[in-house]
Design a protein around this nucleic acid. Structure first.
Lengths: 224, 224
DNA sequence: TGACGAATATCCGAGATCGAGTATTATCCG
DNA sequence: CGGATAATACTCGATCTCGGATATTCGTCA
């Protein structure tokens, strides 16, 4: 009973399905698809089967039977165990109650933004803002149009969360663009200066701000 | 020259460091640490060296020399190639201009929220709200207190982004709690009803809302 | 001076992840 | 009725990821 690895939320989704009733892995996938949970939880068959294997090894689920219909591949039906049900609730509670640090692609990009020229950055951020507007509109359309086939909000609450994040990001990006264009973003002079020197053929540039006065290499840097 | 895999942003960070000057991998790590970029870009030594290997295989960087000082392990110094510099700008531009779908842990949790009892959910969401307040306060404190050692905002813009996301989430979570408590969240009656039946010993519950009218479960009903 | 921890610099193997492949049956369409 | 497409149910191998070893040197404090 190796202590489970709580990295992949697909395992959590599998547990939650088997909590309802026993299923075979492919059926779990179908269920998640029908409920559109694969848009919040990464689901691909490669991972699914290894995740299921892992859950079995840890004693959180157990194979109940393997059926074969005609000459189609065997289906192994799994059921959740008591410790599996406990793990489901514990893990889920943990995810709800405790924010974890996520490493977002856009965050990474922002952290290296000075590599791009300021005008470039403004254009690209503008593109992003447009894309976000489109995505938000589509999401709203999907929700309003189909009204989720009478599915109460509770069961698509994750969708509202993501929409709200996108809206917040859109606002922020638009403000950032204005700050760059208006020159009110601290550090923009250095940014412009470097890229002008770059354009003039002077190769070396440093996207960090060690140039001013105190060279704190090796000691200072950290925020304690 | 295998077409590079743009999954791990650490590769982007490596490129951006080597864009400034040639370095050996460990030095890249130091640089990123000093600039506190490891809080936006997942950095661990295991990945670093394999990422560097991959970049070399793809011709985006190349080993310039391997130095040995005393009897310490050899250090291989890498430099960026022309195609590496192009890839850096293209990749970064792409990340800035095009939002990608992120699979957030909290999103996953929300999508399975009905597994928990409503009162449980309220408590846990409250805990989350508190934790978020603490994190936001600490982040602000760190920024205001040290004023980033004179580091202009431009170079820590990713930090502002993350703070803004946390604030938005905090607001949203607080609103959600109120909606659950106030009973204004659509679907809450079913939620309560199921969990009351659960508590009364009736085992079977379905966290999806297929019970009312349209029943397309698993495309075939019972396969058993 | 010599013990001890921290820093330097890299490597390794177990496990996770992913997309593509396989083999069969059901469904549709004229 | 036959051929194309979709759906069913899983498998495989190549790559990626991570945490922890490894081996050396530096600083420091008694």
């Amino acid at each position: 009973m190796a202590p489970r690895n709580r990295r992949n939320p697909l395992a959590l989704a599998v547990l939650s399905c088997l909590y309802e009733r026993p299923m075979h892995p492919y059926e779990v996938a179908q269920t998640l698809r029908h409920r559109v949970k694969h848009e919040s939880i990464r689901l691909n068959y490669g991972s699914l089967y290894s995740v299921v294997e892992g859950l079995e090894r840890s004693g959180l689920i157990s194979a109940r039977e393997t059926v074969r219909e005609g000459r189609r591949p065997e289906r192994t039906v799994y059921e959740i165990t008591d410790s599996g049900a406990r793990e489901l609730v514990e893990w889920l509670s943990d995810l709800v109650s405790t924010p974890v640090k996520e490493y977002l692609q856009f965050e990474a990009a922002l952290s290296l933004l000075p590599v791009l020229a300021p005008e470039e950055a403004v254009d690209l951020l503008g593109e992003r803002a447009n894309a976000l507007m489109v995505q938000i509109a589509m999401r709203r359309g999907a929700r309003a149009g189909a009204e989720h086939q009478g599915l109460p909000r509770l069961f698509t609450i994750e969708d509202e969360y993501v929409e709200m994040l996108q809206e917040a990001e859109l606002d922020w990006v638009e403000r950032l663009v204005k700050e760059i264009e208006g020159g009110s973003l601290e550090g923009i002079e250095q940014w412009r200066a470097w890229h002008e020197r770059l354009a003039a053929g002077n190769g070396s540039m440093a996207p960090s701000a060690e140039g001013s006065d105190d060279d704190d290499e090796t000691t200072g840097g950290g925020t304690a």
